[in-house]
Amino acid sequence: MRIGIPRGLLYYEYFPLWKCFFEELSAEVIVSGPTTKRILDRGVQTAVDEACLPVKVFYGHAAELGDCVDFLFVPRVVSVEPRAYTCPKFLGLPDMLRASMVLPRLLSPTVNMRRNRRQLLAAVRQVAAELGAGPVKTWRAWRRAVAAYRRFKEFLRQGYGFEDAVSLALGQNRHLARQAPPARDLTVAVLGHPYLVYDQLVGMNLIQRLRSEGVRVLTADSFTPAEIEAKVRNLPKALFWTYEKQVLGAALACLDRNVDGIIQYVSFGCGPDSMIGELIQRWVRRKRDIPFTLLTVDEHTGQAGILTRVEAFLDMVARKKARSA
C-alpha cells in the first residue's frame, strides 16, 4: 500500500509524525520531490487563481504524485488546539484539490480539536481503519509517531535544518554533525510559515544563505511552545490562529533573546500574515528597536529582488551593531 504525501503546507509541520505512523502500519510512504519550477508551474496551472503561493505549490506536489500512489494523504486540519483555528485554506484543502484535478483515493481525516483534544484520536482511528489496521497496532503506531514528532521538534529547536531534523527524528543518518558555529556575532530571526522558509524553491535558500554569511539564524521553531505561549498570553486579545500565533510569539520572544534583526517571510495574499506582520512591527517598535523587514514572495518573485533586500538588511544590522558596540 503506497501513501503519497505532497511536500507542501503542513508537511513541514508534521511530516515525521505522519511518516512514522504510516510505516508502523506497514504502509509505504512516498513524498513528492523538493519543489522545483516544474512543480510550481503545474500548481499554478491547476490551482484557483486566488490561492496563495504555498497552496499552489501544494497543488503541484499533489499533481506530481498523481497516480503512482494508492492513497493521497491530505488531512482536513481545522483546529489543532482548543479555541483556535488553522488557516481557512487548510479547512478546505481536500475539497479544493478534488474540485480541480483527478486524484487517487484521498485519505482525508478531519482534525478538529477546537472543543476537545481527544477528537484527534478519533481521526487517527478513522485513518487506521481505512488502512485496515486493528486498534492495538494503531495505538502502538500512534505512540511511536508522536515520539518521533517530539524528537523532530526538539532537533529543530536545537538549530538543525529541516531535512536534518527529519532524518534524525526518524532515526536515519544519526552521524549528522551539528552546525558549525557561526563566524560572525550576528543573530537574525527568519520568521514565517515553515512551508515558506523551509521550502527549497519558495524559501530562496534564505536560511542557508544567511548561515553562509556567518549569521546565526533563529526560526519560529527555535522557541519552545511554552515560551511562545507565555509571550502571546500578554497580548490584549487572544490570537485564534495557531500557526500565526507561533510566528508572532516567536517575534515577541526574540525581544528577550539577543537578536539583532528580524526578517518576516510571507507569501503575497496571505490573509492572516497581513495582520500578523502589522502586529509584529508594532510590538517590535514599541518594545525595543530591532531592525525588522518584511519579505513578500509570490510566483513572480525573482531571486534578485529578495537577495538585494537581504543583503541590504544584513549591511544595516551589521553596521548598526558595530556602531552601538
Binding site: 528597536d289 513578500t296 513572480h300 541590504a312
Partner: peptide, 13 residues
C-alpha cells in the same frame, strides 16, 4: 539615525 541606517523599505510588486 545618527549616521546609521536603521530601517529601509523598497516598493514591492
Amino acid at each position: 539615525r545618527d549616521g546609521v541606517v536603521v530601517d529601509f523599505a523598497m516598493n514591492t510588486v
